[in-house]
Design a protein around this nucleic acid. Structure first.
Lengths: 212, 212
DNA sequence: CATGTTTTTTACCATTTGGTAAAGGCACGA
DNA sequence: TCGTGCCTTTACCAAATGGTAAAAAACATG
């Protein structure tokens, strides 16, 4: 059952299918209600199986939540990891921003899952932030700093820059309910958002703004 | 007891004191755990009174939450309302941003209270968003639009501008746990954040950037 | 198809939690 | 000092919720 150890038997087809169904259901429910607000019954319903059956596949509510966070952390950070030191600095960052905006549009549940967790103090994720996110973050800060030092970007605090990219892009997913009230037109809203965010960071980072 | 009607007796000194204590405790607990994650026992503890005593002053958990949201909504929106059509446009907006940054630093619990509510779809706040926030938002959008039309600000979508100000400023309160992991130095962190945010919006909005 | 293994269901359980009933306390004016 | 009305506590309760035990069903495999 618990295979935290090295003694893992190959998971059966049914196991894979059901674990996947549970993760999908858990994402749906946890992202909408937060950890404490979600119930096993809701998750079981969404997964189309009984509550004891959930527990057969995962050790409990917390285990499901942790498994979900772990599984999604990597793909959530992938765009940041893809910022390359080979490319044109401004284009690299703008591409990162575009990817983040696309993720907010396409995967708002993932965004809200993390947002819920972090707003409440990241009780189940702090170790991951330290061990996975922090090194990547520092690495990219250093890269951006080197671009700035080389005069290929305007002066800016790299850490603050990355934070502000997250703030702007994830806002559209996390605070969707509010955005919808204020900017009703959906399709036009995303276009306007993309334009606005791109303009902001373009003006902030264009290296020529240091020319005086 | 329930004085939703016009038949309100003047609340006693004790009533005022205890209601205030409850609201403070509820802010502490709801902002940290979200609506569902908070328990009446936690709130009662934090308020230094027994659970049935809470219910004596408020009709129930939901009533406390709603009262809290209502009470804080006004002061939370005050800075936006204070944007004046008399002032210098750029300074008006930068002052608004400074006030919002200060509120994130001084009142992170209020920020997280709303963040929790909105992320989960604003189930208890949507009416308020429509009736209180939307009109104010539209009014300020129109004002900003008029400034842009007069050439006193760079071209930008006013709605997106306000959204991005909220995203940037509230991020520091809402995602504090993450920010702390990534930018450890607290005092320096806030200074850097203030500088960064101000720089961003200054570059975005400076009217001379339209001069070509 | 017989048999051992994996998966699922049925029937529970203990705790937590929002909420109630009703009996004290307590302050204060007559 | 004795009510009277506001406030607080004690003792509960029903529903919800995370979780378990064990039997039944489904499945794989010789």
């Amino acid at each position: 059952m618990d295979m935290a150890d090295g003694s893992a038997k190959k998971p059966s087809r049914i196991q894979l299918r059901n674990r996947k169904r549970i993760m999908e259901a858990a994402l749906e429910v946890f992202s909408q209600h937060g950890y404490r607000g979600a119930t096993l019954d809701q998750i079981a319903d969404a997964a189309g199986m009984s509550k004891p059956n959930l527990i057969y596949y995962f050790d409990g509510k917390e285990a499901i939540h942790v498994a979900l966070l772990n599984a999604l952390m990597e793909e959530w950070l992938a765009p940041l990891a893809e910022i390359s030191d080979d490319g044109e600095p401004l284009e690299e960052i703008l591409n990162y921003i575009r990817r983040k905006m696309e993720m907010s549009r396409l995967f708002p549940r993932e965004s809200r899952l993390f947002a819920n967790e972090i707003i409440q103090g990241a009780p189940r994720m702090l170790p991951h932030l330290e061990s996975d996110l922090k090194p990547l973050f520092d690495e990219k800060c250093a890269l951006i700093q080197s671009w700035i030092a080389a005069g290929r970007l305007a002066h800016a605090d790299p850490a603050q820059l990355i934070l502000s990219i997250w703030a702007m892009t994830q806002h559209y997913a996390d605070f969707d309910a509010q955005v919808r009230v204020l900017v009703p037109d959906e399709a036009q809203g995303w276009a306007a958002a993309n334009t606005h965010v791109e303009t902001m960071f373009r003006k902030l980072l264009a290296p020529q703004s240091t020319n005086f």
